[in-house]
């Protein structure tokens, strides 16, 4: 199995170095792995996720994701378009577009024709069980349904990695389970690496591996005690 993420001594600070968000991170993530990143607020877990998704650049160290060097500003758009699918805590769907049109938005960076985009978006909606809602506006959907649309959008360009930042943070527990099950199913069926940032241990325990971030450093990355209660989502 090859690694899809290779991070060495990654540093990132804010406010002229007064806040060290990442303080020497070393991390390897394997292709097809499901990893959860946990840590208290301000620990640096979201900064780490932003680095993985090339939304932010590190101060020093190296970070290579899916064959792209993310320490320089080159080809970052291409990387995000082709390799990464983001799922956010809030669905962030565009309100005036229909569900299917929302899924097509990332495909504007591809060379697909309009009809190819439409059929791909519909097949993704089918995967998340919302094909019958394709022409509806997001406002007509429930919170869980919106998040499923957001997941379908994340898969639009066949990414290597799904980065999910508290994907169930704004949902009730029953809907959360459904969303997590969907993410895990898609991760397995599409062989996509899944990286979830969460502060919910129940969510974290679903992963193959838990990475804990504290004060910008990884702790107990291979600590089996965190995973010994690994559960399966219902």
């Amino acid at each position: 199995m090859s690694n899809v993420v290779e991070i060495n001594n990654l540093m990132k600070s804010y406010e002229n170095g007064h806040i060290k968000a990442l303080n020497g991170i070393d991390l390897t993530i394997w292709e097809g792995e499901f990893v959860s990143i946990i840590g208290p607020s301000g620990s640096g877990k979201s900064t780490l996720l932003n680095m993985l998704g090339a939304l932010d650049l590190p101060d020093s160290g190296s970070i290579n994701v899916a064959g792209y060097d993310l320490t320089s500003n080159k080809k970052l758009n291409e990387f995000r378009a082709k390799k990464i699918g983001f799922v956010f805590q809030l669905h962030n769907l565009i309100p005036n577009l229909s569900v299917v049109e929302n899924i097509e938005i990332p495909m504007f960076t591809s060379n697909l024709s309009n009809s190819e985009m439409r059929s791909k978006a519909l097949s993704l909606l089918e995967q998340v069980g919302l094909k019958d809602k394709a022409s509806q506006k997001p406002s007509k959907l429930s919170g869980g349904e919106r998040q499923r649309v957001a997941i379908a959008r994340a898969l639009a360009n066949d990414p290597s990695i799904i980065l999910a930042d508290e994907p169930t943070g704004s949902l009730d527990s029953k809907t959360s389970n459904k969303i997590l099950k969907l993410l895990i199913d898609l991760h397995k069926s599409n062989n996509v690496t899944l990286i979830i940032v969460t502060h919910d241990m129940d969510v974290a325990r679903l992963a193959d591996r838990i990475i804990e971030v504290l004060d910008g450093q990884l702790v107990n990355t291979s600590d089996d005690s965190l995973l010994e209660n690994k559960i399966d989502v219902e």
């Binding site: 939304l55 758009n77 995000r80 082709k82 962030n92 938005i105 504007f108 960076t109 360009n157």
Partner: peptide, 16 residues
Amino acid sequence: TREIGVLKAVGWSNRK
């Protein structure tokens, strides 16, 4: 603002 953030996250270039 947030939507523009999403567009950047899904790989839209500045030019787009």
